[in-house]
Amino acid sequence: MSSAILQCEQLYSERDDRVLFADLSFSLAAGEILQIAGPNGAGKTSLLRILAGLSSRFEGELRWRGQSMLHNCAQFHRETHYLGHGAGLKAVLSPLENLRWSCALRGVSQADEAIFGALDKVGLSGYEYHPCLALSAGQQRRVNLARLFCSSAALWILDEPFTAIDQKGVAEIESWLAEFKTAGGMVLLTSHQPLSPSLGANVIDLGAH
């Protein structure tokens, strides 16, 4: 695959002397969705943290746009959205204030219009000024997902994006994934539920390794 943008070769990681995965190789090209499956404790989150650049507990080679991740990690981080288990929200601040901060971190200033648009897209218009502690777990998750629409990225890394989201919301998220895929974006996600077949996602099963 010459068009692969993210390449992972022979990844190996262990935790407490237990091998999580070994000799794991895959690649991701524009417009591809990759689901990482496996039972609890199989190392899905560890793999995503390694790919996002948060964890260095691995051996192997990661390449982004053909260059080793060691050398262009700033560019990689700018082009990637990582949403992990934690919400990354300050409970006493409103969604608007939280997102203003995340936009500033990514170098987007004067982003209010984009933030209002993103909150509207995730179904939270009207909650812009409420403190996040007054929102339900599912709504907080949605604020977190709104990050994806505040600034552009080439790759989304989503760890269990469907947690605490209602059934209608799951379908919504899948439609956003489909939109992003059509626009040439790449998605890496973990989820225990099977994705809708129309997304055409590839699956890596860590339990099988």
């Binding site: 990582y82 934690g86 990354g88 929200l89 300050k90 995340s102 971190l105 990514r106 170098g107």
Partner: peptide, 22 residues
Amino acid sequence: RSDFDDASLEQVLLSGSPLFPQ
């Protein structure tokens, strides 16, 4: 502490902006 607990520290490290001013 609170940034670590609510995972906003991860957002800081992955933002791609230099850490020094942050």
